[in-house]
């Protein structure tokens, strides 16, 4: 199986592209995923992720029906995810008590819009499945460039303002008293999360993206108590899950996205159980 994957990797450009997409997305996934896990905003990330479908569907529709041939589904995904991030962020900042209701609504409306656009676009029904569950084997060279740019933006933003993001994740009120513009950085963090979600949907699709965003960071959290080390480990885990899932799925022709998620879930479970056992042994 492994050998088949390696020889396939030498022969097929689509497999090389898939490998690159999974490695590129790992970098953003590990860094931003760690913030999402420690700030406990995976539900918000879920809302953002499902709006991506609306953006992809709208872009696809405009391209097919209105003849905007330069428009790529990923462009729609970026726009929709950023819009969702800002809307959800403003609601969670200024109308706290209704936050979960609004996130749930945005979540479902984003999907519904996507389904409507895709069903109105002639001859694109099969795209719905690949948006929902991902199809990393369809990533083109052009897509890779866009993914690389997104990665660069995410790393630059996360790196330059690492201290502020860590400050608002740990203790928002204290950061505010220190003069940090908490609201702005919170929205910024949600926007970086949105871009990361877009990167990851190319790998595993809209439905499973939250697992891939949070599981590598959560796995890493079992091994370290430093945020930077958690991020580095999470990048490594994300790459292992991504490439491993790709390799395992290639031989038997399984869907890559689902294989990656199952692998990530197994890794997380193993780390959790392993740490529990170690902890019990240590106490004896």
């Amino acid at each position: 199986m492994e050998a088949g994957f390696l020889s396939g990797l030498q022969q097929h450009a689509f497999l090389q592209n898939a490998l690159w997409a999974s490695l590129l997305s790992s970098v953003a996934c590990g860094t931003i995923g760690s913030f999402v896990v420690v700030r406990r905003i995976s539900y918000i990330a879920g809302g953002i992720a499902h709006c991506v479908l609306g953006g992809m569907g709208a872009a696809q529709y405009l391209r097919a029906v209105c003849g905007l041939s330069w428009l790529h589904p990923l462009h729609g995904a970026v726009a929709a995810s950023l819009l969702a991030a800002v809307v959800i962020g403003l609601v969670s900042l200024y109308a706290r008590e209704r936050e979960d209701t609004v996130i749930g609504a945005v979540w479902a409306i984003g999907m519904a819009v996507g389904v409507l656009f895709i069903s109105s676009t002639p001859g694109y029904d099969e795209d719905l499945m690949s948006y929902l569950f991902g199809n990393i084997l369809f990533v083109s060279g052009e897509d890779l460039w866009l993914l690389a740019v997104l990665d660069a933006v995410i790393l630059l933003g996360g790196g330059l303002f690492f201290n502020q993001f860590m400050g608002i994740c740990f203790d928002e009120e204290f950061a505010r008293l220190r003069g940090v513009r908490v609201d702005l950085f919170y929205l910024g963090l949600l926007c970086l999360t949105a871009l990361t979600v877009v990167l990851l949907t190319t790998v595993v699709g809209v439905v499973m993206v939250i697992a891939l965003l949070t599981l590598p960071a959560a796995t890493a959290g079992h091994f370290t108590r430093s945020l930077t080390r958690m991020m580095l480990l999470a990048v490594a885990f994300s790459a292992i899950y991504g490439v491993g899932g790709l390799a395992l799925s290639y031989g038997p022709g399984l869907p890559a996205g689902a294989t990656i998620i199952v692998l990530a879930g197994a890794g997380y479970l193993l780390a959790a159980v392993g740490r529990g056992l170690l902890g019990r042994l240590g106490r004896r």
């Binding site: 860590m166 740990f170 203790d171 950061a175 220190r178 003069g179 940090v180 959290g221 108590r225």
Partner: peptide, 23 residues
């Protein structure tokens, strides 16, 4: 009780947050 005791940060990381304003 205002913060997460499991947060992955070292003592110096937390104290440095006090320098965020002048940073």
């Amino acid at each position: 009780m205002m913060y997460d005791a499991e947060f992955p940060a070292s003592v110096i990381d937390v104290v440095l947050m006090g320098r965020l304003g002048g940073h």
